[in-house]
Write a protein that binds this DNA or RNA. Structure first.
Lengths: 195, 195
DNA sequence: GTCTATAGAACGATAGAC
DNA sequence: GTCTATCGTTCTATAGAC
């Protein structure tokens, strides 16, 4: 029962509060209180509130991109659309608690400096590799429309987990939403080009 | 060139700033400055900053739900999936500037009191009527999965308009995204049940 | 590493003159 | 309806003792 180190407690508290109340709606005091730490601890461990946010986002995104990359490498050389959707969207359900998806949606909708400061080059690379794989599987689809559709995958996976209940933190029960999403998105990706 | 009344100027300024910077990230001072009004004008015309937000959201949502309802009533008694998608998702493109969709995404992701205070019973009714119409067109789809898919429509329509460029306020050029969305979503809605 | 104390700035709201 | 002036609160960041 040894308590986690202060740094981790701060990350946990901040992840939860940033998701629930947003960055500007969360005070450093609320974070340190929930973490059982002192007000000055954020400054000591992270430098500023904004850098704490960056650390939180990186910690959330990292396992997702890692799982997406591993899933892509596990596929054969000519994967089906459904397999690609499963490998790309699945980790958004498996590696992210439902309450954390709120944080992702908030980042989506926020163009401000602090929310974009976590320099995610890793998930840009993953996205580009999936884009290339989808392009091979859908040779007739123009690049722009493909890009639209990939952003549709992210939108459905992120937003559809947010509202169901307002508070609970169930990690991953059987999660029918995950299977519904794959059905929904595989059909959507397989549609013929709009032309 | 008569200037609009202060109330409207405040609504315009608040709509833009709430979308760009969020509710908590926008000060009353920033709104009144942009509107060319006095700091006290928000209190006089709306009572408080939170009630100004409610008025902004109602003004954004109203034409969307009205167009969705009109579109539904224009359809025959046995519409196709594609027609239903067009009627439901189309107004999200036609009646909403791309920069305003940011505000919708922020509301999606924010469970706080102020962001839910605009008592939207009108768009709940519209949603329920579309849900019934989709249920008739998709008799084998369980109600829960149908609900998941309808939230998918909202997710794609709202999120997919946010990121393309960061700033511009182009109202509606030819907007290929609208047609891509209907293709994408009609295929997704038509998928057989996950079972 | 952890704490107290506080500086310094910004905020929402409102009273009251015009 | 519009304005000025200001109250009381809350915020982040940090200096400095332990």
């Amino acid at each position: 029962m040894a308590p986690l180190d202060t740094r981790t407690q701060l990350l946990d508290a901040a992840e939860r509060l940033f998701a629930e109340r947003g960055f500007r709606g969360t005070s450093v005091r609320a974070i340190t209180d929930l973490a059982g730490a002192n007000l000055a601890a954020v400054g000591y461990h992270f430098g500023s509130k904004a850098e704490l946010l960056s650390a939180v986002v990186r910690r959330v995104i990292e396992p997702i991109t890692a799982a997406q990359l591993a899933g892509l490498e596990r596929l054969g050389s000519e994967p089906t659309i459904s397999e690609l959707v499963e490998a790309f969207a699945g980790p958004l359900f498996d590696e992210m608690r439902a309450d954390t998806s709120r944080l992702i949606v908030r980042i989506f909708g926020d163009p401000s400096e602090e929310m974009r400061d976590w320099t995610g080059s890793a998930e840009e690379q993953v996205r580009d590799r999936y884009r290339a794989a989808f392009a091979r599987a859908l040779p007739d689809l123009p690049a722009e429309e493909l890009w639209f559709r990939m952003r549709g995958i992210l939108a459905v996976a992120a937003v559809d987990r947010v509202d169901r209940h307002n508070q609970p933190c169930t990690p991953n029960p059987t999660e029918p939403a995950r299977r519904w999403a794959v059905t929904f998105l595989a059909a959507a990706m397989s549609a013929p080009p709009t032309g």
